[in-house]
Design a binder for these strands. Sequence first.
DNA 1: GAGCCCAGTGTAAACGATTACATTCGCCAT
DNA 2: ATGGCGAATGTAATCGTTTACACTGGGCTC
Lengths: 339, 339
Amino acid sequence: MVTIKDVAREAGVSVATVSRVLNGSGPVSELTGQRIREVAGRLRYVPHGGARSLITRKTQTLGVLLPDLYGEFFSEVIRGMDDTAQRHGFHLLISRAHADRHGIETAMRAMRGRVDGVVAMSPDLGADAPLDVPAALPVVLLCSAPRGDGADSLTIDNQGGSKAIVGHLIRLGHTRIAIIKGASRNYDAAERMRGYRVALRAAGITPDPSLATEGGFTEAGGYAAALELLKVKPRPTAIFAANDSMAIGALSALRESGVRVPEEMAVAGFDDIPLARYMDPPLSTVRVPTYELGARAVEMLLHCVRNGNDDARRRERVSTELVVRRSCGAGSARRTPSS
Amino acid sequence: MVTIKDVAREAGVSVATVSRVLNGSGPVSELTGQRIREVAGRLRYVPHGGARSLITRKTQTLGVLLPDLYGEFFSEVIRGMDDTAQRHGFHLLISRAHADRHGIETAMRAMRGRVDGVVAMSPDLGADAPLDVPAALPVVLLCSAPRGDGADSLTIDNQGGSKAIVGHLIRLGHTRIAIIKGASRNYDAAERMRGYRVALRAAGITPDPSLATEGGFTEAGGYAAALELLKVKPRPTAIFAANDSMAIGALSALRESGVRVPEEMAVAGFDDIPLARYMDPPLSTVRVPTYELGARAVEMLLHCVRNGNDDARRRERVSTELVVRRSCGAGSARRTPSS
DNA sequence: GAGCCCAGTGTAAACGATTACATTCGCCAT
DNA sequence: ATGGCGAATGTAATCGTTTACACTGGGCTC
């Protein structure tokens, strides 16, 4: 492996001069510069990133810690992150970790000295204590309950989205609106539940506990939850699933039970995954700007990385967009934007 | 930021001893060991990964270079890679790069000194010349035309998959089978086309050039291609799209043209993306084991990293599985495995 | 022509770890 | 008593860079 020393020897100069030429720092004569560049090219010299970052104390790399979920969400977030990082000359060190405190902390430790900062998604609720990681490491928490004041945080406007779609159902005349909740300790799930309650109360409807089931954010969970809800008397006329996967499971359950959607039961989801518009009927939902979520998280992190980590903590939130399709039975069946 | 020196000073020993304790190398007295561990814990010392890798000449990190595509494929591949890498104590440095030679080479250079090896996906055909990267860097090429002998390669059994599904259509009695090809210079696309031809010839059918259109692997492309194919006289009775996205586009085009699937036109895709089984009718396709693809690629790379990069080049291929659903009109409409 | 400045270059000290080699010391066999 | 051995520890070189500082020599200004 050819190092800067090899280049220096071959070009008959010192390593300092080579470094200056290759980084454009310090004054070097035109002639020497050319010679060095020629030699470096001929020898196929490529600077050793690790060595460089040791002395400059910057790795030009951002750590990304994601929970064990995957699918379209995962890849879109990463796409947003990578685009943004690359535009600023940064790499991405990606690791999937358990969503709990311990998993996150372990993974973060392993990143010490390899990254300039970390975007971590640890949606598990409860661990309100700040993370036990080297204090100097900038951290942006994604879709997580804000924790202490060691880290910035970026979340989805879950409440706003829930309120929008539940409000829409209410305007369509529904009063018995059920909810299929997400994973029990999950931050997004809790917030979506809260938005649902707020929307009902704002319309003068008292949330009925028998209309709240849990689906764990999975398709199978949504399926089971829908079957439960069909047994409730009087039966709800609308189901709001806290994500699209569960809504899709619910649609299957309803079809197999012979319940027509949206005539006998309106259904709505959350996330607007690609599948949603292909459902039969197409699923009304709340669009989450996944790409922007990743992009914004990296921007926030880069801000910390560059300006030091010491200034005031930022708490940001990306807003959502109501996507009305046929599954909720709106007259506005075709008001779907674009897709 | 606390370093090994801080720990050494605080514990009243030399850095060598601290290192020995923390790595379990060399003999250290029980007492000293305990003291050092206690101090390290109290000071929240975490070894600096970058510094360590500089001297040990191992980064415990694998580079991953993926083209600008995304979606379910992307995330599943990464999931397979990360699981495998993590099991062996490795991290993943992920970068999206242009699929062409130059993009790959640039990205690889940026990874010098940060990774122990690279999995690169550069499906663009044509660049048969070996990649111009530091020779010592182990590389596994994913879904790409084997290039020179500097790198191992792992591909999908595209031909096998195409032959299976086209063969299936032939057994159903079709003789005029159209194909919607993938992106023009793409390796997978070319191989799938080849498999299609081979299958036809094996059945004594001469491929009809007017039945081959191109859809660029996109949904819109598939839509347009299907409209083209409907104009061909005599009209084909089956369409094989080289991926599911195009098949889905084709389904839309057929529905809007009032052509019933599968009665008037059989349709088949390739990839088995999650959407496929939700289509109406559910899409017959070829399942690609995406997770295993990523997992296997990392295993191959780790083999190179560990045993040096010098031994014989491996050329591996993951096999595919025929997934028959309703869109191709098989009597076996419900033979779909699991899903 | 002495002093200064500045462009161009080299020397060597970092960065934070690992590890080969040297040192010390107690113990045991001779 | 002496030599040798091995356990426990320290010293310092090393990995591949960047960069503060020192040095040289030529062109100015007075």
